[in-house]
Design a protein around this nucleic acid. Structure first.
Length: 223
DNA sequence: GCAGTGATTTGCT
DNA sequence: GCAAATCACTGCG
């Protein structure tokens, strides 16, 4: 029996509305902080709270974003980016890793948000197993980083294009009512092009956030 | 610090 | 076609 949107061992959440993702990525990204990403693995749900994200702008935007995969238009790989909002864009990088994005904006506009880190909430045992960590492994290191996040949740190219807002989907974006008050915004990390844009958002001081701790940052109130 | 991995895209013939 | 360059990373030294 499938319990829709239910996260085993954690407070149940409700699917985020499509309209949540139909906004520009720089608006969606900070709002995603504190929301849940849930993944069904062989009938069991694992989940984590989103604590770090980066926005990537579509080619229609007035601010050019050469770091975005959509920058040079539609290709076989990035097709999902140009589709409707609220879908997964998963791609392989550096041979051995995957990165997970959620598409934003209506079809035809290719903004997206890269999920960089989660605080594990449910199914820690499964996530540690996926990551090759021992049972004593600290929770913060399970999904701190975009590649680790995908490995912990078992996300590969097979999950590319999934609708995160569908009750039957094995990958869902949920709101469990957890509210954050404040975020920090910094430059993006791990890229060379357009890295200076202030499009990385994270929960301040959270142990599960990846990357350097001393980046120049500004506080951001979340309405 | 940097090697290792491979999918993807681009720039040549 | 095919070769070369790129790439939003991690783990090991």
């Amino acid at each position: 029996m499938e319990e829709r949107g239910k996260v085993a061992g954690a407070a149940a959440g409700v699917l985020l509305p499509r309209a949540f993702f139909e906004a520009p990525p720089e608006q969606v990204a900070p709002r995603l902080l504190g929301k849940l990403l849930a993944r069904r693995i062989r009938g069991h749900w694992v989940s984590g709270r989103i604590v770090e994200v980066e926005a990537y702008l579509g080619p229609h935007n007035t601010t050019p974003d050469p770091a975005a995969h959509s920058h040079r238009g539609v290709t076989e790989r990035n097709r999902a980016l140009f589709g409707p909002a609220g879908h997964a864009y998963v791609y392989a990088i550096y041979g051995m890793h995957f990165c997970m994005n959620i598409t934003c904006e209506p079809a035809g506009r290719a903004g997206c948000v890269l999920l960089r880190a989660l605080e594990p909430v449910a199914g820690l045992k499964q996530m540690r197993k996926n990551r090759g960590l021992s049972a004593e492994g600290a929770a913060w290191e399970i999904a701190c980083g975009p590649g680790r996040l995908c490995q912990a949740l078992g996300l590969t190219r097979n999950e590319n294009g999934l609708d995160l807002l569908d009750e039957g989907s094995p990958l869902q974006a949920l709101d469990d009512g957890y509210a954050i008050e404040e975020a920090v915004v910094t430059r993006r990390i791990g890229i060379r092009k357009a890295a200076e844009l202030p499009l990385r958002f994270a929960l301040p001081g959270h142990a599960c956030v990846s990357g350097p701790k001393n980046l120049k940052s500004e506080r951001l109130r979340i309405a």
